[in-house]
């Protein structure tokens, strides 16, 4: 079954451990510039949003690639780059609506999330569960349940307020 990263940015503490373990896992080095996942930060207001590849169904990076170096992994469903074919034109970087296709100026290669072959380290190390690895088709169920919970809490509060008045 196809699984994807589910990011709940509200839970993110902004520690960037995901960036660290991503670069260690893939490149054996510590360097957030090599991380497939990046936490975007608005420090002046305490807002942290982890951004990674959405593994789009109709993936712009795949469509735009002039040499067809980008394809989908059949088992895990993630979008991947074949470096034997890639010419490093960075069209995919330009077209990605999430900024999730990266370019590494040290190796001069584009790179992106490959779900660590099914055991994403960002998920494994995130103790606050801001990033989870879930079945793609259950993604909306989780969101729905979350929203429903918020609604019911709000409703209870409203009810209590009314009763008090």
């Amino acid at each position: 079954m196809e699984k994807v990263l589910m990011i709940n940015y509200q839970k993110c503490t902004g520690c960037r451990l995901c960036e660290l373990v991503c670069s260690v896992m893939h490149d054996g080095v510590s360097n957030p510039a090599r991380s497939r996942i990046k936490v975007m930060k608005w420090e002046a207001e305490g807002l942290y949003v982890p951004m990674s590849c959405q593994q789009c169904e109709d993936a712009p990076c795949m469509n735009v690639c002039p040499v067809k170096a980008i394809s989908r992994d059949e088992d895990l469903g993630f979008v991947m780059v074949d470096y034997d074919i890639c010419i490093g034109c960075r069209s995919c970087v330009a077209v990605c609506p999430f900024g999730a296709m990266n370019y590494n100026s040290i190796d001069k290669k584009v790179f992106k999330c490959d779900l660590c072959g099914g055991d994403p380290q960002c998920v494994r190390f995130c103790e606050v569960n801001a990033i989870e690895y879930v079945d793609a088709e259950r993604l909306s169920i989780y969101k729905r349940k979350d929203a429903a919970e918020r609604l019911s809490v709000a409703q209870k509060e409203a009810g209590a307020l009314q009763a008090a008045m």
């Binding site: 509200q10 503490t13 305490g46």
Partner: peptide, 11 residues
């Protein structure tokens, strides 16, 4: 509800 933050790489 999620108002805790941390330093680099700390859980």
């Amino acid at each position: 509800p999620y108002h805790m933050t941390g330093c680099f790489g700390c859980q």
